[in-house]
């Protein structure tokens, strides 16, 4: 399943349309603590968070995160958006809160296994 597949299936908003759409998704990680993500998130995951500042792109890039998914209708700050386009990390959005969207992504990724 690719980034584009989950965007379609979950009806996600896309802030960075030109980058990383065909990257394969291997899982998800939900956390707002950057050190937790640095320490524990796996490459190829969708990172679900409410953090919108520029440092999320650095963390995502260093960890080879497939996409950042912002919850509760939060939007990336302008410099976050610019950096994510440079780094090729897609930033997605949803109006749902973290628990709900995490559950939906989990179902989508694992329900057929």
């Amino acid at each position: 399943m690719t980034v584009l597949d989950i965007i379609k299936s979950l009806g996600l908003k896309v802030y960075t349309e030109t980058v990383g759409m065909d990257r394969e998704i291997t899982g998800g990680y939900t956390s707002d603590l950057l050190s937790d993500v640095m320490g524990n998130a796996q490459a190829g995951t969708v990172w679900i968070t409410l953090q919108t500042h520029i440092n999320i792109v650095a963390v995502a890039s260093l960890k080879d995160i497939a996409a950042i998914l912002l919850v509760k209708g939060l939007e990336p700050e302008p410099n976050t958006l610019q950096k994510s386009l440079e780094e090729g990390i897609p930033i997605l959005g949803t109006s749902k809160q973290a628990f709900e969207i995490s559950g939906m992504l989990y179902q989508l990724l694992y329900s057929n296994r």
């Binding site: 707002d32 050190s35 937790d36 320490g39 968070t49 440092n55």
Partner: peptide, 15 residues
């Protein structure tokens, strides 16, 4: 509030 300062930095470096 930025999601730093969780007291995981130095342990992460060590591990």
């Amino acid at each position: 509030e930025m999601g730093f300062g969780a007291g995981m930095g130095l342990p992460n470096i060590k591990s």
